[in-house]
Lab assay of single mutants.
Amino acid sequence: MSIQHFRVALIPFFAAFCLPVFAHPETLVKVKDAEDQLGARVGYIELDLNSGKILESFRPEERFPMMSTFKVLLCGAVLSRVDAGQEQLGRRIHYSQNDLVEYSPVTEKHLTDGMTVRELCSAAITMSDNTAANLLLTTIGGPKELTAFLHNMGDHVTRLDRWEPELNEAIPNDERDTTMPAAMATTLRKLLTGELLTLASRQQLIDWMEADKVAGPLLRSALPAGWFIADKSGAGERGSRGIIAALGPDGKPSRIVVIYTTGSQATMDERNRQIAEIGASLIKHW
Score class of each variant (00 low, 15 high):
residue 170 A to G: 13
residue 22 F to V: 06
residue 269 D to S: 13
residue 33 D to V: 15
residue 248 G to F: 01
residue 56 E to V: 08
residue 115 M to C: 07
residue 42 V to H: 02
residue 169 E to T: 13
residue 60 P to Y: 08
residue 134 N to F: 03
residue 159 R to H: 12
residue 42 V to A: 06
residue 28 L to N: 07
residue 78 V to Q: 03
residue 199 L to T: 10
residue 171 I to M: 15
residue 191 L to G: 01
residue 75 C to F: 05
residue 33 D to I: 14
residue 241 R to K: 06
residue 62 E to F: 07
residue 159 R to Y: 06
residue 174 D to C: 06
residue 105 P to R: 05
residue 125 I to K: 00
residue 233 S to R: 01
residue 172 P to G: 10
residue 86 Q to W: 10
residue 266 A to M: 13
residue 145 E to L: 09
residue 24 H to D: 13
residue 239 G to R: 02
residue 135 L to A: 06
residue 90 G to T: 13
residue 69 T to P: 04
residue 80 S to G: 11
residue 247 L to C: 07
residue 139 T to Q: 13
residue 207 D to C: 10
residue 198 T to S: 13
residue 48 D to Y: 04
residue 201 S to F: 04
residue 179 T to Q: 00
residue 55 L to G: 07
residue 212 D to T: 06
residue 150 L to I: 14
residue 84 A to G: 13
residue 175 E to W: 13
residue 203 Q to F: 08
residue 165 P to M: 07
residue 214 V to P: 05
residue 232 K to M: 00
residue 61 E to M: 14
residue 193 T to W: 10
residue 22 F to E: 15
residue 151 H to P: 04
residue 53 K to L: 13
residue 95 Y to M: 07
residue 286 W to Q: 03
residue 195 E to L: 04
residue 264 S to T: 12
residue 129 D to S: 01
residue 250 D to S: 14
residue 52 G to F: 05
residue 189 R to F: 12
residue 251 G to P: 08
residue 285 H to S: 10
residue 151 H to I: 10
residue 199 L to Q: 14
residue 265 Q to M: 12
residue 226 G to T: 12
residue 131 T to V: 05
residue 115 M to A: 06
residue 65 P to A: 06
residue 274 Q to L: 15
residue 38 L to K: 06
residue 267 T to Q: 13
residue 63 R to C: 07
residue 273 R to L: 13
residue 20 P to H: 10
residue 96 S to F: 12
residue 122 S to V: 12
residue 41 R to V: 09
residue 31 V to F: 03
residue 43 G to V: 00
residue 57 S to H: 13
residue 235 A to D: 02
residue 143 P to D: 03
residue 113 D to I: 08
residue 94 H to Q: 13
residue 279 G to F: 05
residue 162 R to G: 08
residue 118 R to H: 15
residue 38 L to E: 06
residue 83 D to H: 04
residue 62 E to R: 06
residue 37 Q to L: 13
residue 223 L to W: 03
residue 284 K to E: 15
residue 156 H to F: 11
residue 278 I to T: 03
residue 77 A to P: 01
residue 238 R to K: 13
residue 215 A to Q: 05
residue 231 D to Y: 04
residue 271 R to V: 10
residue 262 T to L: 07
residue 153 M to Q: 09
residue 185 A to V: 06
residue 135 L to T: 07
residue 242 G to V: 01
residue 175 E to N: 13
residue 285 H to D: 07
residue 222 A to D: 09
residue 42 V to Y: 06
residue 88 Q to K: 12
residue 208 W to A: 03
residue 103 Y to N: 06
residue 57 S to T: 11
residue 106 V to T: 07
residue 275 I to L: 10
residue 284 K to Y: 15
residue 139 T to S: 15
residue 28 L to M: 12
residue 184 M to S: 03
residue 105 P to V: 07
residue 94 H to E: 11
residue 70 F to D: 01
residue 34 A to E: 03
residue 266 A to R: 13
residue 88 Q to R: 12
residue 256 I to P: 00
residue 81 R to E: 07
residue 146 L to E: 01
residue 55 L to A: 06
residue 50 N to M: 15
residue 163 W to H: 09
residue 77 A to H: 10
residue 46 E to N: 10
residue 212 D to G: 06
residue 259 I to V: 14
residue 149 F to P: 01
residue 259 I to A: 03
residue 30 K to T: 12
residue 222 A to V: 14
residue 250 D to N: 15
residue 147 T to F: 02
residue 2 S to I: 15
residue 131 T to R: 02
residue 58 F to G: 04
residue 8 V to A: 13
residue 187 T to V: 08
residue 283 I to R: 06
residue 190 K to F: 08
residue 40 A to I: 05
residue 131 T to E: 03
residue 241 R to V: 03
residue 89 L to M: 11
residue 134 N to V: 04
residue 221 S to R: 12
residue 5 H to L: 10
residue 3 I to A: 08
residue 65 P to V: 04
residue 31 V to R: 01
residue 2 S to Y: 12
residue 105 P to I: 07
residue 254 S to L: 11
residue 70 F to G: 07
residue 127 M to Y: 11
residue 243 I to T: 04
residue 15 A to M: 15
residue 259 I to Q: 01
residue 124 A to P: 00
residue 126 T to M: 09
residue 192 L to D: 01
residue 163 W to D: 09
residue 63 R to A: 07
residue 279 G to T: 07
residue 90 G to Q: 11
residue 44 Y to C: 03
residue 184 M to L: 07
residue 200 A to F: 09
residue 11 I to H: 05
residue 224 P to D: 06
residue 67 M to R: 01
residue 83 D to Y: 02
residue 109 K to L: 14
residue 103 Y to S: 06
residue 193 T to F: 10
residue 192 L to A: 06
residue 155 D to R: 00
residue 196 L to A: 15
residue 212 D to A: 04
residue 210 E to Q: 13
residue 229 I to F: 04
residue 246 A to W: 06
residue 156 H to G: 15
residue 178 T to K: 02
residue 17 F to K: 07
residue 49 L to I: 14
residue 87 E to N: 05
residue 224 P to V: 03
residue 95 Y to T: 03
residue 129 D to T: 00
residue 229 I to L: 07
residue 124 A to M: 07
residue 172 P to S: 12
residue 281 S to Q: 14
residue 284 K to Q: 13
residue 63 R to L: 08
residue 23 A to D: 05
residue 168 N to K: 02
residue 207 D to S: 15
residue 145 E to D: 11
residue 94 H to N: 13
residue 225 A to P: 15
residue 182 A to N: 09
residue 180 M to R: 12
residue 76 G to V: 05
residue 100 L to C: 06
residue 171 I to A: 15
residue 108 E to I: 11
residue 107 T to M: 05
residue 54 I to E: 11
residue 260 Y to W: 02
residue 187 T to I: 08
residue 164 E to S: 00
residue 39 G to V: 10
residue 109 K to P: 07
residue 272 N to W: 01
residue 49 L to R: 03
residue 137 L to S: 05
residue 88 Q to V: 11
residue 280 A to L: 11
residue 21 V to N: 06
residue 229 I to Y: 04
residue 9 A to H: 12
residue 127 M to E: 14
residue 151 H to W: 15
residue 82 V to R: 07
residue 214 V to F: 05
residue 280 A to E: 15
residue 212 D to M: 03
residue 77 A to T: 08
residue 107 T to R: 01
residue 82 V to Y: 07
residue 193 T to N: 15
residue 73 L to K: 01
residue 258 V to A: 09
residue 75 C to N: 02
residue 196 L to G: 12
residue 49 L to F: 15
residue 10 L to W: 07
residue 209 M to I: 02
residue 218 L to P: 03
residue 101 V to C: 10
residue 6 F to S: 08
residue 209 M to C: 06
residue 207 D to F: 10
residue 286 W to Y: 07
residue 40 A to Q: 09
residue 193 T to H: 14
residue 130 N to D: 05
residue 187 T to D: 11
residue 202 R to T: 14
residue 120 L to A: 06
residue 31 V to W: 02
residue 255 R to A: 04
residue 104 S to T: 06
residue 5 H to M: 15
residue 234 G to K: 00
residue 143 P to Y: 03
residue 30 K to Y: 06
residue 94 H to M: 14
residue 60 P to A: 15
residue 135 L to Q: 07
residue 133 A to G: 12
residue 1 M to D: 01
residue 189 R to C: 12
residue 151 H to A: 14
residue 180 M to H: 14
residue 11 I to R: 05
residue 158 T to V: 04
residue 231 D to Q: 05
residue 208 W to C: 03
residue 206 I to G: 10
residue 68 S to A: 00
residue 182 A to H: 12
residue 278 I to W: 02
residue 38 L to Q: 06
residue 178 T to H: 02
residue 127 M to F: 11
residue 14 F to M: 11
residue 202 R to I: 07
residue 59 R to A: 06
residue 227 W to Q: 00
residue 264 S to D: 04
residue 272 N to S: 05
residue 107 T to H: 01
residue 200 A to D: 15
residue 245 A to C: 10
residue 108 E to K: 12
residue 193 T to S: 15
residue 253 P to S: 09
residue 180 M to V: 14
residue 115 M to E: 03
residue 99 D to R: 07
residue 77 A to L: 11
residue 98 N to M: 11
residue 209 M to N: 00
residue 202 R to C: 06
residue 34 A to D: 02
residue 177 D to C: 03
residue 159 R to G: 04
residue 169 E to W: 14
residue 206 I to K: 12
residue 242 G to Q: 02
residue 245 A to F: 03
residue 178 T to P: 00
residue 194 G to I: 05
residue 250 D to E: 14
residue 111 L to D: 07
residue 142 G to F: 01
residue 123 A to S: 10
residue 186 T to G: 14
residue 22 F to W: 14
residue 34 A to Y: 06
residue 211 A to P: 04
residue 262 T to Y: 15
residue 255 R to P: 00
residue 236 G to D: 04
residue 237 E to C: 12
residue 68 S to E: 00
residue 222 A to Q: 14
residue 214 V to R: 06
residue 70 F to L: 05
residue 127 M to K: 09
residue 277 E to D: 11
residue 150 L to M: 11
residue 31 V to H: 01
residue 11 I to C: 13
residue 77 A to S: 10
residue 242 G to D: 00
residue 168 N to H: 05
residue 125 I to T: 06
residue 102 E to M: 12
residue 121 C to S: 04
residue 137 L to P: 00
residue 5 H to A: 09
residue 233 S to V: 02
residue 30 K to V: 11
residue 279 G to V: 05
residue 240 S to D: 05
residue 237 E to S: 15
residue 265 Q to E: 15
residue 276 A to V: 10
residue 279 G to C: 09
residue 147 T to N: 11
residue 224 P to H: 06
residue 248 G to Q: 01
residue 59 R to P: 00
residue 216 G to C: 08
residue 34 A to R: 02
residue 118 R to C: 13
residue 158 T to S: 12
residue 173 N to L: 14
residue 7 R to I: 10
residue 150 L to P: 01
residue 250 D to V: 10
residue 12 P to Y: 13
residue 257 V to A: 06
residue 212 D to C: 04
residue 241 R to H: 04
residue 97 Q to A: 13
residue 221 S to V: 11
residue 215 A to F: 03
residue 54 I to C: 09
residue 136 L to S: 02
residue 4 Q to P: 09
residue 170 A to T: 08
residue 270 E to R: 11
residue 46 E to D: 07
residue 35 E to I: 03
residue 151 H to S: 09
residue 285 H to R: 11
residue 176 R to C: 09
residue 190 K to G: 13
residue 76 G to Q: 01
residue 49 L to Y: 12
residue 274 Q to T: 15
residue 243 I to E: 03
residue 84 A to Q: 14
residue 1 M to K: 01
